[in-house]
């Protein structure tokens, strides 16, 4: 029942509905062309809702017409997916943490912490090597971006050292 297509179809309807809600809030003025700024967004929104409905119906029909073998395959298609999402969410949290600390800690420190935490999270075993990769990797990236490419990265805590 809860196949990937079914979930995809329902998600499309939901995204389309939210988008349509905001598309209908767009104001038009007397200077607009006949279609106005909301014309095509509304069309896209309705198309997304319609296509989502088609995908949902396709999924429902497919699961009704499915043979016993296919049915059991579909039952197993979500096995282990929760764990995968949880692992991915961990990496996502590391990325979000980086966004919050980059301005405060500065680029060099925050990228070193990012390398260290990410490598450990992804299963790097050798602690000494992880620290070395984090330190030298951060220095390499800092040289590449700040010195070679001339990008102004945040200095943060190390501002007093001119980094």
């Amino acid at each position: 029942m809860l196949t990937r297509d079914f979930v995809g179809g329902v998600a499309s309807i939901a995204i389309g509905a939210v988008y349509l809600f905001f598309a209908y809030q767009l104001r038009s003025s007397a200077l607009d062309d006949s279609m106005g700024p909301g014309g095509l967004p509304r069309l896209y929104g309705w198309l997304l809702v319609g296509l989502g409905a088609v995908l949902t119906i396709q999924a429902l029909l497919a699961s009704r017409l499915a043979t016993a073998d296919v049915s059991s395959e579909e039952k197993g298609e979500w096995d282990g997916q929760g764990r995968k999402v949880a692992f991915a969410a961990g990496l996502l949290a590391i990325g979000l943490g980086y966004i919050f600390v980059i301005e405060t800690l500065g680029y060099l420190l925050s990228v070193a912490v990012l390398l260290l935490v990410t490598a450990l999270y992804l299963g790097a075993g050798n602690k000494g090597r992880v620290v070395a990769v984090a330190v030298f990797g951060a220095i390499f990236l800092w040289v590449m971006f700040v010195i070679v490419l001339g990008v102004r990265m945040p200095s943060g805590l190390l501002a007093s050292l001119g980094l």
Binding site: L91, I94, I102, V111, T118, L120, G137, L149
Partner: peptide
């Protein structure tokens, strides 16, 4: 893989940040 992916992650985040700071 953990080291390689950690480095790629840092590269992506640094690269995108460098566009508009």
């Amino acid at each position: 893989r953990p080291y390689l992916n950690a480095f790629i992650f840092a590269l992506i985040l640094s690269g995108i940040y460098s566009i508009h700071n």
